[in-house]
């Protein structure tokens, strides 16, 4: 059942992405309405799909490479929709929805079978640790999109080559504010995710920190965002520099999220 819903979700997200991209070009209000409707429907089916999967599997469905990207996409779309309804920046969707679509496509490339949960993951820490980390990652994904938009808009204004993006994208101030908000919410979530992870590791593996590949990459990611937060608050980093940090930071996030599990091996690799 959850697989069927998953396919519907994929269809809605792809259609939504298509609509958001054509909105970026055509700028017709009706297209943005359609795009939002697609994404909202996709999100509802996604919620149902994840709930069903939870009931079928008996544990929070975030343990393998089919479940995890899908869950991250769900979190990204959920937070994005809240933002769109609050701040009314529809073009943002043209940057966010492709990311969610790619994640869902990644997800669909992996086996959807529900295997027995490795004994080590049978813990109440699983949902706490992973959900915190994923919501942090989702917010960093939004900061990444805002960063890309910032760089485009800044280039247009700085180089004085006014193109169609100049009219379509929001102001530099708004984009920089999004970067700031995302950082102040995402960073604590990431930190909490890592703290809960290390407490769990103490119970499961016997030590708080064991230099596993995922741990190292997460630490690197954490240091990047910590540097940005420090720079923002104490030195006055903003604008272009903050945007670049958010983009680089998100690549680190994606690598510790997907790359580590597919390319490296370590304690966090469960589904091989």
């Amino acid at each position: 059942m959850s697989i069927l819903f998953f396919k519907i979700v994929l269809a809605f997200y792809l259609a939504g992405t298509f609509a958001y991209l054509s909105y970026l070009i055509k700028q017709r209000p009706i297209i943005s309405t359609v795009a939002t409707a697609m994404l909202c429907s996709g999100f509802l089916f996604h919620t149902v799909s994840i709930t069903l999967r939870y009931m079928e599997a008996g544990y929070t469905p975030i343990t393998n490479l089919y479940e995890a990207p899908s869950f991250l996409a769900w979190a990204i779309i959920g937070i994005y929709l809240i933002m769109q309804f609050r701040y009314k920046i529809t073009v943002f969707g043209s940057f966010v929805s492709p990311i969610a679509s790619i994640l869902i496509l990644v997800s669909s490339a992996f086996s959807k079978e529900i295997g027995p949960l490795p004994p080590i993951l049978k813990s109440f820490w699983l949902p706490i640790h992973v959900v915190l980390a994923f919501f942090g990652d989702a917010i960093f994904a939004l900061a990444f999109c805002a960063g890309i938009m910032y760089l485009i808009q800044e280039h247009q204004i700085k180089s004085k080559k006014i193109g169609s993006f100049y009219y379509r994208l929001p102001s530099l101030k708004v984009l920089d504010d999004i970067n700031h908000y995302c950082l102040t919410i995402g960073f604590p979530l990431l930190t909490l995710g890592m703290i809960t992870g290390s407490i769990w590791a103490r119970h499961a593996w016997g030590s708080f920190w064991s230099w596993d590949a995922k741990e190292i990459w997460s630490l690197l990611t954490w240091i990047l965002y910590a540097a940005l937060l420090h720079g923002r608050i104490n030195i006055g980093w903003r604008g272009r520099r903050a945007a670049v940090f958010a983009i680089v930071g998100f690549f680190a996030v994606m690598f510790s999220f997907l790359g580590v599990n597919t390319m490296l091996s370590g304690l966090h690799t469960y589904d091989r």
């Binding site: 204004i157 102001s171 530099l172 101030k173 708004v174 504010d177």
Partner: peptide
Amino acid sequence: ELAKKIFAT
């Protein structure tokens, strides 16, 4: 307009 694209308001 440019000022608004930089400062929002």
